[in-house]
Amino acid sequence: MTEPLIACDRLCVELGGAKVLDGLSLSVHEGDFLAVLGPNGGGKTTLLKVMLGLVKPSSGSVTVFGKEPGQASGRIGYVPQRLDFDRSFPISAMEVVLMGRLSRKKLFQRYGREDRQKALDALETTGLASLAQRRIGALSGGELQRALIARALAGEPELLLLDEPTASVDPEMKTTIYDLLDQLRKQHTIVLVTHDTGTIGRHVSRIACLNCTLDMHEPGSTLGRTALEKLYHFPVDVVEHRETQTPHRHA
């Protein structure tokens, strides 16, 4: 068995004295498309931030590409939940996507032709090529989300970490984003944090339920009402987790 890209072992995280993650063990292997489900405050974003090296665990261990988190920035593409930015910031979509090349650049090294080409490719993949010169504040919610995905892709990462990419977009855009992820999973290992219990099962290869502690659900199993109600503490839709080797197509 190959070495996992991400390995968490009995990971605990405390933020401001409260335990956010408790004894979590998880491994993500190359080619996985893992969805992490769970209620707000269940530690989903914190888990991603631990993987990115932004939050230090209080006990337990994490390795990402066999190293301490934060040491492999060039191999990870991160898509934040939503960008708290000033909509009047004078910057084009292209310039934002170019930031995805930052981890591959040295200090004082300027963005070159290759960087621009990779950024354009990423905009092409996410369907935003025609909006490259648009001011970032003028993009719609769905376009902004895709621009953030493009920024992550521009760095040519092996691993994509996405924080609720469909939380702030309308249902149609949600389908577009999932179609995009179906396409991206062919070349990338993906970890996705989401609330989307409804459609997620059709797209991903593994599901983890996170509410301070973690339950893994492997392919073929159905995540029943009891498991989800235990997770969310109130009734939710059943997540059917079918194996989908054939890519999902949206009619």
């Binding site: 990115l52 920035s73 910031f89």
Partner: peptide
């Protein structure tokens, strides 16, 4: 990068 998105700048090393 730090002006537009400081967290992303930090993640980028």
């Amino acid at each position: 990068a730090i002006s537009f998105d400081e967290e992303y700048a930090r993640i980028s090393g």
